[in-house]
Structure formats: C-alpha cells, structure tokens
Amino acid sequence: MIDRRLETLRVLRERGTVTATAEALHLTPSTVSQQLRQLARDLGVELLEARGRGVRLTAAAHTVLRHADALSAQWERARADLAAHRSGSAGRVRICSVSSALAALVAPAAARLRAEHPGLDVRMCEKESEEAAHLLLSRRYDIAVAIPSEGVPAPGDARFDVRTLLDEPQDLLVPAGHPLAARGTARLDEAAAEPWIGSPERADQHRLMLASCAAAGFAPRIVHEAYEWFAVSALVAHGFGVGLVPRLAPLPPGDEVVRVPLRGETVPRRRIVACVRRGGDAQPPIARGLAALRAAARG
C-alpha cells in the first residue's frame, strides 16, 4: 500500500550508500538508483546530491523521510487492525538475536510459542546487534533482540519501539582451583592483579569489561584475546588468565572453569533489548513473540 521507493529511501538513510542499500533489499545498485531517480521525478524535488564517490540526502529527502516514517507506522497499525479480523493464532514472526540471547531467551520463547500457538510459524536467526536497525527496516525480521550499541535503535527513535528484556550481570570466569573459585562470590577488584582474556572483536563486551574494571579502580592487564565463549573458556581453563562472561553465555560442559558471581557497587551488567518497527507490536504474531520473550527473560 505504501510506495516501495519510500522504503528504499528509508533504508538508504540507514545504510548510507546505494551499494549497502541494494544488499539489504536484495536488489542491484542500478535498481536502487533508478527507483530513487523515479521517486525524485514524481515528487518534483532532488533527493540525492553527489558527495565524493557517494551520495548525500538533501533537505527535501529528509522531509520526505519524516512523512515516510509516519506512513510506515500508520501502515503497521493498519495491518494490526486488519489482523484483528482474523483469529490471530496463525501467521509468522521472525526473530533475529545475538548468540547468547538466542540460546537463553529466544529459543525458550519460541518453544513456548510452539506449545501455546502451534499455528504460529516462528523463524529464528543469529545476527549481530549492529545489524538490528536495517534488518527491521528492510522487513527481513519482525523482532531484533540486541545489546544497545551502534546500529541498534535508540529508545527515542521514531521508527522503532525498544523494550528492555533484562539487565544481564557478568560473571568472573576463573580456572578450577583458583583461590576465588571457592569463595562463592567476589569483588571485581580482587582480580586486579590477574592476567586477563580480552574480547576486542566483541566491541560491546570489551568496552563493558574496560569500563567496569576502571570503575573498580584498575586497568586489566590483557595478555590474550578470544572471540567465542568456548575459546575464552579454554584459555581460562588452561590458566592463561581470567575473564568476564555474560550470565547467559553458554560455556562448554565440564568442571575446568568456574563462574564466580560478582558483588559490590561495580558489578558489570549489559542490557538486552527487543526492538520492533513502531506500530508493529500491535500485530498478534509480533505481540505474542514479545510476550514470550518477556516471559523467558523473567525466567
């Protein structure tokens, strides 16, 4: 019902380049350029201007986008009203999520939906937080479970609704036999002298570790780096250092490492949010998906 060229313009605002927009929409760059030229001609205004080897949105384009955002939200509400004429027990909800939340929240939520609404088709996919906004805007997914960072919709963004699912504490990961392993809990500064395993490729996680250690009064001495949690766990298990792991992060089975819950004023936490297109939460499949995610988070 809404001109698809407006959706193309909205994705271009998010992605920044014609090539990235084409990739997000599964189109060719020439198709994207043609759509935007046609839209500009029909509206009688210039939407793009050259900027080096790329393009920049004009002031007129930003005016068009304000109306396009309002139209999109209204269309989501219209679809919700139309869905109310059906039973609401069937349909599809597509959820993308960061890996740890996919395992600990999304999978249990999908299992609940399968049991309570067998006619509801739930599709899940692991995606990084930075992809959340454009995956929603390109309508490839209906719900994005993410960690707030660059690329994740901010709470005040008029295009999205953002709901907090939980504030997940971080645990100190130490090898079995470490003096802190038998303590039950520990303060973060008690690990100040330890060698640390860093995860700079997980930008949000790495920044959280550095900020939390700074708040505890020390800078971690990072001697090794790993990305996947099983790799961090292996390095810790072999005595190469300690690390921080999210409470939801799955670790390999066995007793080579010990999670030590942290206490005190500097317990690091990361927020996990669910993002949807504004107005989309009124559609029964999406609403049920959000409710199931909230129930999983409470558990």
Rank of each mutant, 00 (worst) to 15 (best):
A176W: 04
S100F: 12
R123D: 13
D167Q: 05
A146W: 11
L166E: 10
A146E: 02
A132T: 13
D161G: 10
G156P: 08
A132F: 06
L165R: 01
T164F: 05
V122T: 13
G119E: 10
A107T: 15
A132K: 06
A181C: 13
G91L: 01
A107G: 14
S129P: 06
P169T: 02
V145Q: 14
S149G: 02
P169N: 03
R92D: 02
A107F: 12
G156R: 13
P108V: 09
P155H: 12
D161T: 15
G151V: 10
L173T: 06
L120A: 13
L173G: 12
A101V: 10
R139N: 01
S89G: 12
P118H: 03
A103Y: 15
S149V: 01
H178V: 09
I143D: 00
I95N: 01
P118R: 01
I95P: 04
E168V: 13
A101R: 06
D161H: 15
L102H: 10
S149W: 00
A158M: 11
A104R: 14
A176K: 05
M124W: 03
P148T: 01
A133M: 06
E130N: 04
S100E: 08
A158L: 12
L135G: 05
A115F: 07
V162K: 04
P153Q: 15
G156W: 11
R92V: 06
S100H: 11
R163Q: 08
T185S: 00
